[in-house]
Amino acid sequence: MNSGIVGYGAYIPRFRIKVETIAEVWGKDGNAIKRGLKIDEKAVPNYDEDTATISVHAALNALRRAKIDVKDIGAIYVGSESHPYAVKPTSTIVGEAIGASNDYTAADLEFACKAGSAGIQMVMGLVSSGMIKYGLAIGADTAQGAPGNALEYSAAGGGAAFIVGSKNNEMIAKIDETYSFSSDTPDFWRRNYAKYPSHGGRFTGEPAYFRHVASATTGLLEKMGAKIDDFDHVVFHMPNGKFPLGMARKFNIPIEKMTSGFVVQKVGNTYSGCSLLGLSAVLDVAKAGERIFVTSYGSGAGSDSFALTVSDLVDKRRALAKTTKMYVDSKIYIDYPTYAKFRGKISV
C-alpha cells in the first residue's frame, strides 16, 4: 500500500449560533450545557448551502493545494448523512463544479459520521492498486437536530476534502497505515423520510463511541507495532468536546497533542466532516516529519483509524488555500429565529 494526501481543504459555513442562544429558547442553562458538552458555538449553513455546496468549496481548496490537473481525478466519493437527494449523487455535482473530466468513478457514501473517512480508505485502495491516479474523498454534512433535542446544541455544518495519490514526491502527508473496527450497534439512526435523527441517549457513549474508537485505535497501533506516544497530533471524532477528551484520558494522551485538531468547541459536530476537519486543522499547523493519528467514528457503528507522517511539502502547500482556522474565525452570529429559518425548522 502506497498512498498519501496530495491535497486537502476545509470549508465551514460563516454563520454561528451560540449554545446559550439555543438554550435560552428551551429554558435550559446554557453555561451548564457548554461546560458539559465543551461546545461554545456551532457553524450553521446558510439557507442556500447543503452538502453539495460545502463539498465543492472543500474540494476546490484541496485542488489548490494539490496543484494537479483536475482531469486526473479518477474517483470522487462524498460521505454524508445529509445528501441533498435521496436518489441522485452529490459526487457528480461536485465533479461537474470542480471541472473534472467524465472519466471517473463516483458514489455517495453514508455511515453516520464516518462516511468521509471510509471514502479515504476507498480511494487509498484505488490509487495503491494503480486503478486511478488520484482520488477525491470528501466528508461533509449539514447536520440536523430536532428543535429542543440535545443534538441541537452540537449538530453543525461543514466538511473537508482530501485528494489521495501514490507518488511520494507529491504527498503532503503519507498515509502509513489504516485499520477499521465495525459492529452492528444501534446508537443513532434516522429512518427513511424522518426529518431528524433519533439516538439512544447514554447508549451512544460506552458501547458505541468509546468501544469503537478505542478498538480501532488499539487495533491500528497493534497492526503497526506502534505506541500512541509515537504520534505528535491525535484526532478522535468529536460528537462533542467531552468524548474525545475522555478518550485521550483513556490512552494517556497529553492535552497538547489533542489541541490542534480540536475544532468542535467553535464549530460543533459536523458529522461526516468532523474528524476530517480535525485532520485538516492539524495539517494546517503540523511540521514536516511529525506523525498524526486520526480515528473517526460513525454511529451504527464503526471507526476508521489512520496513521500519517507529514512531509516537507506541507509548508509550501498549506498557504495555497484558506486554513481551517481562517474559516473558524470568519463568522457572523445569528439568533435562533434566523437559525430556524436557515435550517428549514420553519416552513414557508
Binding site: N46, D48, D50, A52, T53
Partner: peptide, 15 residues
C-alpha cells in the same frame, strides 16, 4: 457555489 432554487419538494435542485 450555492443552491439557487429548489423546484418544489420533489423537483430538481438548481445550483
Amino acid at each position: 457555489f450555492r443552491k439557487i432554487y429548489e423546484d418544489g419538494k420533489e423537483g430538481i435542485i438548481q445550483y
